[in-house]
Amino acid sequence: MMVDTTQYTLFSGGLKGAEAEFGINAERWGLREVTLSFRGHEMARAKDVRVLSEEELRRGDISMEIVSKRMGRTYAEAEKIRRVLQSIFHMVNNGYQVFAVGWIQPDGTVKGGTGWGVELAKLFNRPLSVFDQDRNRWFTWDGHQWVPDDPAIVHKTFAGTGTRYLTEEGRRAIRDLFERSFGPPPQG
């Protein structure tokens, strides 16, 4: 049975690394893409861009104090990172299932800005999987802890995010995720 990949939509931010790679694979398999952006946002992949208005960005606003507490760290450039965190809110809010590539830290959070998308997915009770580039494997959040897994894209909308510092293993993991979900890439 063939899966109609045109019924699936990737929400991403188009940044270099994992987000651009999710987009490349979405295009390869014929999925729809929505690349969320904001004024001043530099993207490596600017396909099907939707620029968030100031009002939309405000809907994704959260206290940096709450972010710092949830993530267990502080952010030096709070105003700069605020826009990124606001756009990540829209990625997770629009893409039901969430996939990220990065590093799971000992406290269960994920390193960097990617970690905020992961924490939002936990808060929103979204199906969530992270490819850990140190352990070179996927983990799925079971509501309490990270469990080794080989996830698949099973929801029509999903978010793809992650580190700008994508390893070759991370790149392969994203491709394998699409292949597990939709079969071999179409020829052409």
Rank of each mutant, 00 (worst) to 15 (best):
L36V: 01
G183L: 12
R126T: 11
I88N: 03
H41F: 08
D61A: 13
L57F: 00
P106V: 12
S53V: 07
Q105V: 04
P106S: 13
R171A: 06
T35M: 03
W29N: 02
F158P: 09
A44D: 06
T35D: 05
R82M: 03
S12Y: 05
W103L: 14
E19W: 03
K80E: 14
A173G: 03
R164D: 06
F124S: 00
D142H: 06
G13Q: 06
G95T: 03
T5I: 07
G117W: 08
V67Q: 14
S87E: 15
R180N: 02
A78H: 13
M2R: 14
R32N: 15
A159S: 13
A76D: 13
E55N: 12
H90G: 05
E65F: 13
M2S: 15
G113N: 10
R39W: 12
A100Y: 04
F182M: 05
V130H: 01
V84G: 00
G17D: 04
E33Y: 09
M71N: 02
D61E: 14
V154A: 15
Y165Q: 09
I81D: 05
Y75K: 08
L120P: 02
R180I: 07
Y75E: 09
N136C: 14
S12E: 07
S68A: 15
D149S: 06
R175V: 11
I81T: 13
A20N: 08
F124G: 09
F178I: 00
D176I: 06
P184W: 11
D134G: 12
E179Q: 12
R82W: 00
T163V: 10
W138H: 04
L166F: 04
G170Y: 03
E168N: 13
Q133E: 13
N94S: 02
E169P: 11
L36M: 10
T157D: 07
T157Q: 06
Q97P: 07
V49N: 02
F124R: 07
M43D: 01
G108P: 00
R135N: 11
M71S: 00
V51D: 02
